[in-house]
């Protein structure tokens, strides 16, 4: 009898404090933290950084487990989210292939508007890089070099239809130049291929090229942001060269389609906290990302704009 009394007393005591605890959705198992790119690239670095911040500050009751699914320009990741049987524990770190891959591969049956917006962590600019041994100092020199090579100049990136190839396509078109494009598995591999002079030029995010830039192996010639970047003083923008084009990679977190509203709110609160952390704010600054915070509705609107943009850009490539 005493046992039951204690139990009932205990349960009623719990019941008084419980409502607040029950309303709050919490992950019940490790969170599948899918990355739509291979290891070492910009998206991967960001995912691992976010994971570390969450661990360091002990923000989640269950760990975020990074899961690289870069296959098929991120198609592998999109399908994983689309077909997961546990949408409440599946989130995705995106880049712009979140927009471009479903456009290029309609047979995947992925509609990004069914995904759950969580957080926009920032946007990542791009720069045009060459190796220091090339002797090329300015963008004009580069254009002349590519022209002189007559189609034999070798560029590299993360794959046709990916962010960097879109930028290359625009530049090639705008300046009437042509070059070979070699696809690699992730931005990290692209940066290393340039540092090893396997290829002549890349369009990489600052974070991907940072180690080699600091060592003086590679050199930025042009940036594709709206304004010059503090990290590369004196390096001109494409806009200054007379072409109204800027391009950024989105660094956003989205949830699987069908995620419950409670779970979505949980992740939004989590990523707001990470976004506001000193660590993330420092990361934005050192890796030259621009902050671009949006709420869920603004994110959906942004997706629409980006899908339109990418549809036009991809049409322009063909």
């Amino acid at each position: 009898m005493k046992f039951w009394k204690t139990l009932i007393a205990g349960m009623s005591a719990l019941a008084l404090t419980a409502p607040a605890a029950i309303a709050e959705w919490q992950p019940r198992k490790p969170i599948d933290f899918v990355i739509m790119a291979g290891p070492g690239g910009g998206a991967d670095q960001i995912a691992r950084f976010i994971q570390s911040v969450a661990e360091k500050k002990d923000l989640t009751s269950r760990p975020l487990i990074p899961n690289n699914k870069g296959g098929g320009s991120g198609a592998e990741a999109l399908i994983l989210l689309n077909t997961t049987n546990d949408p409440d524990h599946t989130i995705l770190v995106t880049l712009n292939s979140f927009f471009s891959t479903p456009i290029r591969q309609p047979e995947l049956g992925v509609d990004i508007q069914t995904f759950t917006p969580i957080a926009m962590m920032g946007v990542d600019p791009f720069a045009l890089w060459v190796h220091k041994n090339s002797g090329i100092e300015t963008f004009e020199q580069w254009v002349d070099t590519v022209k002189a090579a007559d189609g034999e100049y070798i560029t590299g990136g993360t794959g046709s239809g990916q962010e960097d190839s879109i930028v290359f396509a625009y530049v090639n078109n705008a300046f009437g130049i042509e070059s070979k494009y070699i696809p690699f598995d992730g931005g990290g591999a692209v940066a290393a291929a340039l540092a090893g002079e396997q290829i002549n030029a890349t369009v990489n995010n600052p974070a991907e090229a940072r180690g080699f830039f600091q060592a003086g192996d590679v050199r930025p010639l042009l940036v594709f942001s709206d304004e010059q970047m503090p990290a590369y003083p004196g390096v001109p923008t494409l806009k200054e060269k007379g072409h109204d084009f800027s391009y950024y990679n989105q660094r956003a977190v989205v949830g699987a389609p069908g995620m419950s509203e409670e779970a979505a709110e949980y992740y939004r609160a989590l990523f707001t906290e990470i976004y506001n952390s000193e660590e993330w704010q420092n990361y934005l600054e050192t890796e030259s990302l621009s902050p671009l915070w949006m709420d869920a509705d603004e994110q959906r609107a942004y997706w629409n704009v980006q899908v339109d943009n990418h549809t036009k850009l991809l049409e322009g490539m063909e």
């Binding site: 070492g40 990074p66 990290g188 591999a189 940066a191 290393a192 991907e208 180690g211």
Partner: peptide
């Protein structure tokens, strides 16, 4: 190089 040779080194 900042390129992890294996998933463990990536972590």
């Amino acid at each position: 190089l900042g390129i992890p040779g294996s998933p463990t080194t990536a972590i």
